[in-house]
Design a protein around this nucleic acid. Structure first.
Lengths: 143, 143
DNA sequence: GGGCTTGCTGAGACTGAGTATCATCATCGC
DNA sequence: GCGATGATGATACTCAGTCTCAGCAAGCCC
C-alpha cells in the first residue's frame, strides 16, 4: 500500500528536501482512493487548513510524478488528473461513474507491442493504456 | 485513403451544412501526414489565406472528431493533438521524432480487456491505447 | 430565381489550467 | 547555531479552449 511515509522516503532517497508542504500533499494524495485533479487537491488543501500555494502544488505533483509514486492521467473529458500508484509498470482501470481507480499489472502488452512493431516497422518505446469502465460496486448499485 | 472529399461526404451524410470554412479545414487536415495541434492548424489556415475564426476551427475539429474522421490524441507532453483517421476502431503509433502517425487495426485488445475484467471485476467499456516510438524512416536517419 | 428558416460563423470577452519570476523562507549538512 | 541552497508563495502572465450574440449563408420550398 502506498502511504504518505513511502512518499517521504522517496523524497529522502532522491536527496530532496522534506518540507511541511510536501508532507501535507503526500498525506492528501495517500488518502485518495481514486484519481483527482489539481483543482480538487487545491480545495482539499484549503479545507484541511494548510496554506500551500498553487505553484507549489503543481511542483509537488510534478515531483511525485517523476518519483513514480503518482501518475498523470488524461480523462476522456480531456481533463488532466493524477492517481497515486506503485512505481512499477502498470495500467489503470478507471470507473466512469465513481472515479475509483485500480491498478493492473502484467498487462500482456509485450506481445501486442511486438506485433505492432513487426507490422509497422516502428521501434515502439513507450505506450499509454488506460481502460475505462464501471467498477464492481457501481455495477451493483446500478443493478 | 482519407481525403477532403470523404470529409465532405460525411458532413452531408449527417445532414450538416457544407460551408467554405469546413471545406478549407477538411482540405488542410487531409493534407496532413501526421498529427497536428489546433495552434498549428490555425497558422496553416492563415498561411493559406483563408480567414477562419478560432472558435470555428475548434468547432470544426470537434465536429470531425464526432464524425470519426479525426481523432484527438494526448501527446506525452500533455499537449492535445489531432490526427485524421479511418472511422473504424484502431490505435495510433506516433513517431517521437518526426510526429508521423500510423494507424494499427485489429489491436489484440479484446483478450487483454477480458483478462482485466476478470481480474478487477470492472465492466470495461472503452480504452485508450497510444504507442510512441521511432518510425522506420527516422530509424534509418539516426543509424 | 427569390424568399425563408435555421444552422454556422467570427469577433471578442472570458475562464481556468499551468508557468515564470523573484524576494523571502526553511531544511539539512557541517 | 550557521550558511548554502533548495523550496515556497504572491503575483503576473500566457495560452488553450469556451461562450455569446449579431450577422451571414446553405439549402429547402415555392
Amino acid at each position: 500500500m502506498t502511504n504518505a511515509t513511502s512518499f517521504i522516503e522517496r523524497l529522502e532517497g532522491a536527496g530532496l528536501r522534506v518540507t511541511d508542504q510536501r508532507r501535507a500533499v503526500a498525506a492528501l494524495i495517500a488518502g485518495h482512493p481514486g484519481h483527482f485533479t489539481e483543482a480538487e487537491l487545491e480545495r482539499e488543501v484549503q479545507r484541511s487548513g494548510s496554506r500551500i500555494g498553487r505553484a507549489t502544488l503543481f511542483r509537488a505533483l510534478e515531483l511525485f510524478a517523476q518519483l513514480g509514486v503518482v501518475e498523470r492521467l488524461d480523462l476522456p473529458s480531456g481533463e488532466h488528473a493524477y492517481v497515486r500508484c506503485e512505481p512499477s509498470h502498470h495500467h489503470h482501470v478507471i470507473c466512469l461513474r465513481c472515479g475509483r481507480t485500480v491498478e493492473v499489472e502484467g498487462c500482456g502488452m509485450p506481445e501486442l507491442i511486438r506485433e505492432v512493431a513487426a507490422r509497422t516497422g516502428f521501434q515502439v518505446e513507450r505506450h499509454r493504456l488506460e481502460l475505462y469502465g464501471i467498477c464492481p460496486t457501481c455495477r451493483e448499485e446500478i443493478a
